[in-house]
């Protein structure tokens, strides 16, 4: 589904070095890494906001390395709440439908899955809770039928209660829609709740690509061990 080959990209003083991994169709893929590891930079490069300095990005077996984001049809949830503040809830959700067709039934199915009612659609985007905003953001990315969905710390601006609910929703998207997801997080517990396999990214390099149990029991090097150590202290 998504194949990265020796992807490199530098940004200011930081750089991603030779990132390679594969995500299978319908997989829930977790990318672990501490803050400042280059996770967001990697996602931005995959989606096409930045062009890679070297390497290739394949999506659906097509070389999409230098394609602009609007041509890739990859859903992307940013770390911050990126609702368009001047548009209503429904205008936000239907934003991408001007460029990408979707069947009515599919949209209704998404709404049912995310529990979005007609009343909710009429709301103003101001004064939404974190969970509600996240729902809209998810729906907005899903209605355009993305090839895969990138999630950048999607639970970061949610309170604990809505985090639980969001985890359930994300898993059901993977299961019911057969959607491929790339979930980026710094939290090992979050990763454990979502998948059993993960890639660890530290300082712009992939340190380990293994089962989570294996990562915990046999860290590949001292950096991973240190990162896991700080993670368990929380």
């Amino acid at each position: 589904m998504l194949i990265l080959e020796n992807l490199s990209r530098s940004w200011e003083t930081f750089s991603l070095k030779n990132i390679s991994f594969q995500i299978k169709k319908g997989e829930y893929f977790v990318l672990l890494g501490p803050c400042g590891a280059g996770k967001t930079l990697l996602l931005n490069t995959i989606v096409g906001i930045y062009r890679p300095d070297a390497g290739k990005v394949f999506i659906d077996r097509k070389d999409m390395t230098y394609l602009n984001p609007e041509k890739k049809r990859v859903g992307y949830l940013f770390q911050k709440n990126m609702l368009f503040p001047h548009l209503s809830v429904s205008a936000n959700i239907y934003y991408g439908l001007r460029y990408q067709r979707s069947e009515e039934d599919y949209i209704k199915y998404i709404f049912r899955l995310l529990d979005i009612s007609d009343l909710f659609l009429k709301k103003d985007t101001l004064n939404l809770s974190g969970g509600e905003a996240q729902k809209i953001l998810l729906a907005r990315s899903l209605v355009i039928r993305p090839r895969l969905l990138l999630l950048d710390e999607p639970l970061s601006f949610l309170d604990p209660a809505s985090r639980e609910r969001a985890l359930v929703i994300l898993k059901s998207l993977n299961k019911n829609l057969g959607l491929t997801l790339l979930h980026v997080t710094h939290d090992l517990k979050e990763a454990e709740a979502l998948a059993d396999h993960a890639v660890v990214l530290i300082d712009g390099e992939i340190m380990q690509n293994a089962k989570l149990q294996e990562i915990v029991s046999q860290p590949a090097n001292s950096q991973v061990r240190q990162y896991l150590g700080t993670n368990y202290e929380h």
Binding site: N44, V47, N68, P69, E70, G75, F78, K80, I144
Partner: peptide, 22 residues
Amino acid sequence: DPQLEDASRTLGASSLSTFWRI
């Protein structure tokens, strides 16, 4: 926020369309 524009582009809007709508 430039990320709003990025968000718009990942939803399929071209640069011009993003400028016009966001």
